[in-house]
Simulated scan of single mutants.
Amino acid sequence: MKLTQIRNATVLLEYAGVHFLIDPMLSPKGTLPPCHSRVRPEARNPLCELPCPVEVLLEADAVIVTHLHPGHFDQAAAQLLSKTKPIFVQNSRDGEVLRYYGFQQVTVLNADTIFSNITLTKIPGRYGNWDEEMLDHAGSVCGVIFQASDEPCLYATGDTVWYPGVEQAVRTFHPQVVLANAGGNMGWQYQSNMGTEDVLALHRAVPSALIVATHMEDLNHWTLSRQQLRDFAQKKGFLSKLRTPANGESICIFKSKIRNSP
């Protein structure tokens, strides 16, 4: 397995011989409006450029779209990705949107979606600790469990806070690697993905798992930096189980060995 942090929640995953592009946000720096937040309310997104030529990302074998917020799938992705690229989405509504954009191979994830001998399992997320009415307005989100022979089980959380659905997922699947959206991103009132306490709860539920933090420092409403998360993990005693890759940085996982690479 090789995880390459691209930007925000965009990650290039090599898994069991397949290259997945997760949550592609491909727009140039500063070309998208700010997310609705009191945090940096006038800063345009994304806050930095892609760390690699976009053509590298377009060569991926398949795309995972956890939800359709612009920070996870933007107009640039809709325009640049091949319309014959296999794309996996959380529900039929998102599938209809992507088919409207012209994508021809759209699959709704379920409990046992198989792609090239890899099992993909949708895990519902909770987009913040909002009340139910606001959650309905914000829309549904999901994570994905990746499983294949000779590969560690990977859980990509997507945008979610720690809640019983995430706890059930990690206790059911026992992932060896968790790709956690952990920027502590804030809307007007509530945090929409994991902050320090969520990551700590995740570690305590699966203490043997390596947590790889993504979705950090690249949209205007982030509140948790990589350094802050590392400092917190050191204080709580799980720094050895945490990675906070910079944009463009890769983490290779071969059985029980973990190696960072440029």
Rank of each mutant, 00 (worst) to 15 (best):
N181S: 05
N129Q: 12
N193W: 12
K255I: 13
A43S: 11
V199Y: 13
A138W: 05
Y101T: 06
T196A: 14
E197D: 14
M194Q: 03
P24L: 09
L68Q: 03
P51R: 02
G195T: 14
P164E: 13
G158T: 12
F146T: 02
V199F: 08
Y101E: 15
A233M: 05
S250H: 02
M194N: 01
D231L: 13
A180L: 07
L179E: 02
H36L: 15
K236W: 14
L3P: 00
D150T: 08
P51V: 01
T119G: 04
V161K: 04
A148I: 06
E96K: 08
E59K: 06
F73S: 04
L12Q: 10
L154P: 00
P70Y: 06
Q228A: 15
C142D: 10
K29T: 13
I253T: 08
R259I: 09
Q176E: 14
L219N: 06
G184N: 07
L239K: 01
N220P: 00
V11F: 06
Y155K: 03
D112T: 03
L21D: 09
K235F: 10
L210F: 12
R204F: 08
M1G: 04
W130G: 01
N193E: 15
C153H: 00
R93M: 10
D159F: 07
V106M: 14
D218M: 06
P70S: 04
Y127D: 01
I123D: 06
L98R: 04
L109P: 00
G102N: 06
A180I: 07
N8Q: 06
S92P: 00
R171A: 14
T157A: 08
E14V: 08
A148Q: 02
A111C: 14
Y127M: 08
V206L: 06
I251E: 05
N220F: 09
I118Y: 04
L120A: 06
A138F: 11
C153L: 14
G17S: 11
Q147N: 05
G184H: 12
G17L: 13
N247S: 09
T196Q: 12
Y163N: 12
L26G: 00
M216P: 00
D136K: 11
R204E: 15
V56W: 04
R44I: 03
I114E: 11
Y101K: 12
G17H: 08
F146Q: 08
W222L: 12
D23S: 10
L135Q: 07
S92A: 13
S82L: 11
D61V: 10
R40K: 10
L13E: 04
T214H: 12
F103S: 06
K235N: 12
L12T: 01
G30E: 01
V177N: 07
M194V: 02
R93L: 13
P53S: 12
I6A: 01
R171W: 12
A138I: 13
L21H: 02
P24H: 06
H19R: 15
R226W: 10
I123A: 07
D150L: 13
C153S: 03
L21N: 09
S27Y: 02
C48D: 09
Q234K: 03
V89E: 10
L26I: 02
P51H: 01
I251Y: 01
T196D: 10
I114K: 10
R99I: 04
V18S: 08
D198W: 02
G30F: 02
K83H: 15
G95F: 04
T157W: 11
Y127F: 14
G139L: 05
G183Y: 11
D159N: 11
M134T: 13
M216V: 09
T66P: 00
T10M: 03
E249S: 05
C52Q: 05
T121M: 04
